[in-house]
Design a protein around this nucleic acid. Structure first.
Lengths: 123, 123, 123, 123
DNA sequence: GTGGTCTAGACCACA
DNA sequence: GTGGTCTAGACCACA
């Protein structure tokens, strides 16, 4: 079940998109699994079907799901790897963010302690 | 002089806003300095004056500049500290980004090498 | 036995239809041969019987098969010629595709080498 | 001006999309040119703005155009090359089509005369 | 004015 | 039933 915040500045279709990606990544959804149909999710969440479809189209486009009219939408083979690869591309953001924090006067030690806390917790 | 990328997904007023902030932070603009008027910057950059105005209003709102009708806009006293404090608030983004990268299979060593490269370069 | 790709953008009924046509053309299916019943093929392929039915109706409509209620569906006399004639009609697609490739900067020599490779191989 | 066939089996947004691509390829639209706004084209063609936007989104996604809210949509730098490269990918279709025509009993000479007629005409 | 997002609801081909 | 396309029209941030 997805959590949608209609008041968020982040578009609803992006929220749906990201949460399904996260469920694939965490194993809640596995390759081959069928995800809710456009209509099902629409009535569950109280969101217009077009908005759901926009999220599903983006998932299809990225090769995370594939859709068969009449059958539904399914998690594609290799979806997990594809998501991970796209997320690795975010390594560039890290340098940029670190530069900002350095300029703001945050010490390397403070950064390191954040890195430690993220990489040493069990999850 | 500012560099505006009209093709960017980032709103133009945000680009203007951030670049002026950066110039304050790096000392190009000092407290008390006068910045270009809305009309000057508008014709220099070929950008709609309303867009410049929006960026300037946001700078005023955050206490980075103050405007005197008829005289222009000036960098406020304490602007540098105010900017640094707001940027420190971005420390929260770091944890979130690190979690994503960890999930994507990036090792703590890889992260550490990025941290080192940012904190050991002279700039 | 037919190979169905449920992920394909091509409708399943078209895949069934085309593969049976190909089997007629290559002699795997001969005039007078009985093809699997709708129910047999449906359970073999794990495909909705309505979808099989739609493919079979189209084969009947084009005079490639004929169906006798209670007996099954059979390859019609003259099926091979009928298929060949319909495929000749695709000669028009060739001009269109060649125009696109020409505009894309592909040389006549490159085209000719593809033509050679197709027409000189044994199959 | 675009020619839309509402009765066509090809989706309207694809017709719009392809015709704009063709205009870029033939030089009617040049890099940096502004194309009609969503609303303009919508009222010119009598097509719903959402349908126009879907075509424009696809153009953006392929890097053929870029859109700036408030300014409009423009032909991107390198658009022509990008279109040509995507069309070169259609070379694979050529082999497939030629195989079909060969099987249908069309001679290599007939194919060659079509190739000649396309590559020797001035356009 | 301009593109981006969203709702409400229709119709279609396909399964 | 299911996804795909389309219409009609609203509201928003941005320029």
């Amino acid at each position: 079940m997805l959590q949608i915040d209609k008041m968020s500045r982040q578009p609803i279709y992006e929220q749906i998109f990201e949460q399904i990606e996260r469920q694939v990544l965490t194993g809640i959804l596995k390759e081959g699994d069928r995800i809710s149909s456009v209509r099902e999710l629409s009535s569950e969440l109280g969101i217009n079907p077009n908005t759901i479809q926009k999220a599903y189209l983006e998932l299809d486009r990225r090769g995370i799901t594939f859709s068969s009219p009449g059958l539904g939408s399914f998690i594609a083979a290799g979806a997990v790897d594809r998501i991970k690869n796209m997320q690795k591309a975010r390594l560039g953001e890290l340098s940029e963010l670190l530069s900002v924090l350095k300029t703001a006067g945050i010490s390397k030690d403070e950064i390191s302690s954040v890195v430690d806390s993220v990489f040493n917790k069990n999850s």
